[in-house]
Design a binder for these strands. Structure first.
Ligand SMILES: [Mn+2]
Ligand SMILES: [Mn+2]
Ligand SMILES: [Zn+2]
Ligand SMILES: [Zn+2]
Lengths: 128, 128
DNA sequence: GTCGTAATTGAAACTAGTTTTCAACTACGT
DNA sequence: ACGTAGTTGAAAACTAGTTTCAATTACGAC
């Protein structure tokens, strides 16, 4: 555990929304000025393996990252402010029976991501 | 509708598994030898907008594409042979109530992708 | 504390993936 | 056939991500 890694981890933990590698680099430099971009890439890779970070997949490219707790969970992202939260408690298992019947595959894993409107955006833009 | 586009479309339709842009280029050149890589990118973009192609998201980067029918559907990929199929009939709607209660978000969309073992791989490797 | 070693770091060079530019070429309606 | 708007491909430009390597740092053994 080194200072550069702590800086990246902290920037990630503070973020309310998924960050690109560049953004993460910018923010983490606040903690550790001489932080190199390469280290951000390397740290993300380590954290991803540990399950402490998740890549957020979006239509188009998938270049942003959010903190995550280890183990199986899913993310939901606000379509207005981009705030992203995770939740767990499974879920898709309930559907696998039907899917196996429909496709003939045996389901061994899944990958779910949701879009919605976060609590605070629901309050502000009360319309709709 | 031009010859280059037909070539790309055909290569996509024939593929049993998601293809990278390079792979698609290779295969489509069989139909139209002077096909440029740029055209593959451009065609994919058009087809994606039309909902005729979907990007397959994987752990790590998300650089492969599979044919798809327009409208809401999901993909399941075989963890042994990479064969990818799509299915529809919804599904996740059943879970949104619980997710909204859990997260406080209002759910407006989702994005599900499954991993499993395809029928023919189930037959061959009967063990497990 | 000091030392030794293995792991980590950051700059620079490199590779891969994607987009832009632009002149030539098609598709297709008239 | 003709005209035009849309499409194409090569090359150049650009962006994202990886490798290389010498210097630095963490940390366990003394
Ligand atoms: Mn789940
Ligand atoms: Mn669905
Ligand atoms: Zn919001
Ligand atoms: Zn299979």
């Amino acid at each position: 555990m080194t200072a550069p890694r702590r800086a990246v981890l902290r920037a990630l933990a503070r973020a309310q929304r998924p960050l690109s590698v560049e953004e993460l680099h910018e923010r983490a430099k606040a903690q550790h000025a001489r932080l190199g971009l390469v280290t951000v890439y390397r740290t993300l890779q380590v954290l991803e393996e540990l399950g402490l970070v998740r890549r957020i997949h979006e239509q188009g490219a998938c270049r942003s990252f959010a903190a995550s707790s280890p183990g199986h969970s899913h993310a939901i992202t606000c379509e207005r402010c981009d705030k992203s939260s995770e939740f767990n408690g499974d879920d898709v298992c309930l559907l696998t029976g039907a899917i196996e019947r429909k496709t003939g595959y045996r389901v061994s894993g899944h990958w779910l991501q949701l879009v919605g409107v976060c609590p605070s955006c629901r309050k502000s833009g009360a319309e709709r």
